[in-house]
Simulated assay, not measured.
Amino acid sequence: MVLSQMDAGKALTAAAAKGNPEEVQRILEELRVHPDTLNEFGRTALQVMMMGNAKIAGLLLEKGADPNVQDKHGIAPAHDAARTGFLDTLQVLVEHGASVNLPDQNGALPIHIAIREGHRDVVEFLAPQSDLKHATVSGQTAVDVARASCVPHMMDALFAHVHS
C-alpha cells in the first residue's frame, strides 16, 4: 500500500496523538514514513504526540525526528513537555538533542513555562541546563517568573542554580 505524503503524515501523527507506539513503529518501519512528515495541519508527529508517552518520543527521535521543530508560535516539543509536566518525555527529547534554550515567539524557554505551570521536577531538571539570565519578550527571567508564580517551592527549585 502506497500512501501519499499527506496520508502518511496524517496516519503517523494520528497514531502518535493517540499514544499508540505499535502503530507509530509500524508506520515508521513498514511504510517507511519519515518521522518529520507533516499532517494536513502542517505539524509533525513529535509536535502532536501524546506528551506523556516517552516511548513514542523515543521511537520518533531514533528514526530521525527533529527534536527542535517549532510551530508558527515558536513552540517546540520541549515547551509542550515542560507545560504538561512530563519529565520522562522531556528527558528523552533532551537526550536526542532538544534545546532547552530555544525561545518561543514570546521569548519563553521551557523553564519559564514549567515554572508557570508549577512542575517542580521539570524545573529542577531544566535549571542546570537553561540560560537562567534569558528574558522573555516582556523582560522576565526564570527567577522573575518564579517570584511572580507565588508557588513557594519554585524559588527553592531554582535557587541552587542561580548564579548572580
Rank of each mutant, 00 (worst) to 15 (best):
M1G: 11
M1W: 05
S4Q: 04
S4R: 03
D7G: 01
K10N: 15
K10C: 02
K10M: 05
A11V: 03
L12H: 06
L12R: 04
L12N: 04
T13N: 03
T13S: 15
A14Y: 03
A16G: 09
A17H: 01
G19L: 05
G19F: 07
N20R: 06
P21Q: 08
P21Y: 04
P21D: 07
P21H: 04
E23F: 05
V24G: 02
I27V: 11
E30K: 15
R32N: 14
R32D: 14
V33R: 12
V33F: 12
P35L: 06
D36C: 08
T37S: 15
E40Q: 08
E40W: 01
E40N: 09
R43G: 00
L46S: 02
Q47D: 01
Q47A: 06
M50K: 14
M51V: 14
M51A: 08
N53Q: 10
N53R: 09
A54Y: 10
K55M: 06
A57C: 10
E62V: 11
A65F: 03
P67N: 00
V69Q: 00
K72N: 01
G74R: 10
I75H: 01
A76P: 00
D80K: 07
D80W: 01
A82V: 02
R83L: 14
R83F: 14
T84H: 07
F86L: 00
F86D: 04
Q91C: 03
V94S: 11
E95M: 06
H96Y: 14
V100P: 03
N101I: 03
N101W: 01
L102T: 10
N106I: 06
N106K: 12
L109C: 05
L109G: 01
I115Q: 10
G118K: 12
G118L: 12
H119E: 11
H119P: 10
R120M: 08
V122F: 08
E124I: 09
F125L: 07
L126H: 05
L126P: 05
A127G: 04
D131I: 10
D131K: 12
D131H: 11
K133E: 13
H134K: 14
A135T: 15
S138Q: 13
G139I: 11
Q140D: 14
T141A: 08
T141G: 07
T141F: 06
A142P: 02
A146W: 02
R147K: 15
A148E: 15
C150M: 13
V151I: 15
D156G: 00
H161C: 10
V162L: 09
